[in-house]
Computed example of a mutant assay.
Amino acid sequence: MRLSGDQRLEAYRRMLRIRRFEEEGMRQTRAGKIPGSFHASVGQEAAIVGACLALRSDDAMTGTHRSHGHPIGKGAHLDALMAELFGKESGICKGRGGSMHLADKSVGIISESAIVGGGIPLATGCAFGAKQRGLDQVTLCFFGDGAVNQGTFHESLNMASLWKLPVIYLCENNGYAISTSVAQSHGQPDIALRAAGYGMPGIEVDGQDVSVVYEAAAQAVARARAGEGPTLIVANTYRFDEHNFGMVISGPPYRSIEEVQTYKRGRDPIVLYRAVLLDAGYDEDSLAAIEEEVAGAVKQAVEFAMVSPMPRPETLPDYMFKSPLTGSHSFVDGLERN
């Protein structure tokens, strides 16, 4: 299973959309327009897009605190996504989710969570629901290498294997849980080997190669749809920036400047894939047109976020199950109002 001609250009478009969206997000965070922490997935675009392109539009997905790339990788519109980061009413979660808690039903994202490993049982439950309803829908679950040591990972993989659930567990292994390396925190640093303990395939791929990730994900999706159960895919990737934008590490550095520069100069997934496309016969004008299109979409998204209104103070309790102000079930009231 390989990327088709149309998918190749779409892969480039989506990776570039993630990169330019997050670069703009960092600029807006620096300018004080985006509140809270901003966790960028710059450098990890191929792992995200390669996996997402293997899905159907009605397939489900869960993400992590490093969450902006996931909805974009699945095809989300940028306007409402940027507005959400700004905390605006026009955001995909009406300004309530922010950078780390994005949910976009339009592209099948049921949740993104700031809790390490928090999305893994949600994805498992979603896959269980699909199987119970007799659907051939699959669920893609993103998480980082740090989440592999959480209990949610082990419990979920065990249940998914036991019940042959249609779920793909994709570990974005960027080598570090904040500043702690895999070598320092994993008794078994080969994460893919852990799948054998739960009776499912464990596949390790180059997370900087979008085509390789797609092929592995497409095979796992086909296996899940056929009722053969879950797959663990470990995409070895690298984050170019710190754990979150602007974070300062006190004490000795946990990774060298040379290491970071090696990845930026020689393992940038977008640069690598652009070269692949040119070698395959795509011309500069076609790629330049995509680059211009993406730049325009990101600019429009920022403009949309800037002019969008903030949520009204009286709507603060909306979407809570029970209002702390009135005691009423304002979650239902909020849905009716919107």
Rank of each mutant, 00 (worst) to 15 (best):
G119N: 04
Q132N: 01
V307E: 09
G50W: 11
A192P: 04
K164W: 10
L272S: 12
G32R: 07
D285R: 15
R225P: 09
E215A: 13
I34D: 01
D241Y: 15
S211R: 15
H329E: 06
A216Q: 05
I18G: 11
V205Y: 10
M159V: 14
I168T: 13
R8F: 13
Y12I: 12
T152W: 09
R312K: 12
V49Y: 09
S181F: 07
A31Y: 07
Y273H: 14
K74Q: 06
V42F: 02
G69K: 03
E228C: 09
G146D: 04
I110F: 12
V205K: 12
L335Q: 14
Q208L: 11
L277D: 13
G108D: 05
A305V: 00
Y169S: 11
G73N: 05
L85N: 04
S99C: 08
D190S: 13
H101S: 01
I168D: 02
E155T: 10
P71T: 00
V213K: 05
R265D: 15
E292F: 02
A80S: 12
I110H: 06
Q261C: 07
R13C: 01
L81E: 00
S156V: 01
I110Y: 13
Y198W: 12
I257K: 09
I48P: 05
L335E: 08
Y176Q: 12
S250I: 04
S286D: 04
P252E: 14
S111C: 11
A226D: 14
E22L: 06
V294Y: 02
F240W: 12
G296V: 04
E172H: 09
G36E: 05
V148P: 06
Y176A: 00
T262L: 12
M100R: 02
G151C: 09
S323H: 07
I109F: 03
K322A: 10
V148I: 15
A288Y: 04
F245A: 11
Y169I: 14
G117H: 02
D59A: 10
A305E: 00
Q261R: 14
A46N: 06
S330C: 06
P71L: 02
Y273S: 15
G5F: 09
F86C: 03
R265E: 15
V234R: 04
P309D: 11
A31M: 05
G36Q: 07
V205W: 03
A147V: 04
